Amino acid sequence: MDVLINVFVGLHIIGIASLLGGFLTQMKAMGEGTARFNKAMLHGALTMLVTGVALVGLNQADGYTVNTVKIGIKLAVLIVILGLVYVKRDDEKIDKGLFGAVGGLTVANIFIAVLWT
């Protein structure tokens, strides 16, 4: 079971890398006001959602205690990110504040995962 959990952790990290990488590649465009949400960001957020839910289930099935408050907050932040990226994915330009909010929420989600013990 530990191997399966570690595989899903790896996939979860790939998802966050895709979301954050998609944001970081658009930083210059954000400064110019031409940033847009790309497919990597959408697919990264979806990957994080699916693998995160799987990780909670696998950890509970393996007898580990899961901090449900932490998971709930991370899920809420991810749903906001996913909603923004999904709704605005076809727009030619995204407002700087909205685009920056997605990047900030993504970084916040990373810090919640790493620092909240």
Score class of each variant (00 low, 15 high):
Met30Ile: 09
Val114Glu: 06
Ile16Phe: 00
Asn6Leu: 15
Leu55Asn: 01
Ile79Cys: 09
Asn109Cys: 04
Val114Ser: 05
Gly22Lys: 03
Phe8Met: 07
Leu20Phe: 13
Thr65Leu: 14
Met1Gln: 13
Asn38Val: 13
Val85Ser: 05
Asp95Phe: 02
Leu115Arg: 04
Ile94His: 02
Thr34Gln: 10
Val77Cys: 07
Leu55Ser: 00
Glu32Asp: 15
Lys74Phe: 09
Val87Asp: 12
Leu115Cys: 09
Tyr64Arg: 14
Lys96Arg: 15
Ala113Lys: 02
Ile110Arg: 00
Gly22Phe: 07
Val7Glu: 05
Met1Ala: 15
Leu75Gly: 09
Leu46Arg: 08
Leu11Cys: 08
Trp116Val: 13
Val7His: 07
Glu92Ile: 13
Ala76Lys: 08
Met27Ile: 15
Ala108Gly: 02
Val50Phe: 07
Val56Phe: 05
Met48Glu: 10
Leu49Trp: 05
Ile79Gln: 03
Arg89Asn: 10
Val66Ile: 15
Ile14Ser: 02
Leu42Met: 11
Val85Phe: 06
Gly10Pro: 06
Val77Gly: 03
Thr65Ala: 14
Ala108Val: 12
Val69Phe: 12
Lys93Ala: 08
Leu55Gln: 01
Gly22Thr: 06
Asn67Pro: 12
Leu82Arg: 04
Met27Trp: 15
Thr25Phe: 07
Gly44Glu: 02
Thr34His: 04
Ile81Met: 03
Glu32Thr: 10
Thr106Leu: 10
Met48Tyr: 01
Lys70Phe: 13
Lys93Leu: 04
Leu55Asp: 00
Leu98Pro: 00
Lys39Ala: 12
Trp116Pro: 08
Val80Ala: 14
Gly104Glu: 04
Gly63Phe: 09
Ala113Arg: 03
Gly22Ile: 03
Asp95His: 07
Leu84Phe: 04
Asp90Ile: 04
Leu98Asn: 03
Ile110Glu: 00
Val80Gly: 05
Gly21Val: 11
Asp91Thr: 09
Lys93Asp: 09
Thr106Lys: 05
Gly100Asp: 10
Thr47Ile: 13
Lys88Pro: 00
Asp95Val: 02
Lys74Arg: 11
Arg89Ile: 06
Asp91Gly: 03
Thr25Ser: 08
Val80Arg: 05
Thr34Asp: 06
Val114Pro: 05
Val66Ser: 12
Lys74Tyr: 11
Val107Glu: 07
Gly63Asp: 14
Val85Thr: 05
Asp2Val: 13
Ser18Val: 03
Gly21Cys: 10
Lys39Pro: 03
Asn6Gly: 12
Thr65Tyr: 14
Gly33Asp: 11
Gly104Pro: 01
Ala29Pro: 03
Thr47Asp: 02
Val85Ile: 15
Ile71Asp: 06
Gly21Lys: 11
Gly103Leu: 07
Thr51Asn: 00
Ile13Met: 13
Gly22Gln: 08
Gly33Met: 05
Ile79Tyr: 01
Thr106Trp: 04
Gly57Gln: 06
Gly21Glu: 10
Gly100His: 09
Gly63Leu: 13
Ile81Phe: 00
Asp91Val: 01
Asn67Gly: 09
Val9Ala: 04
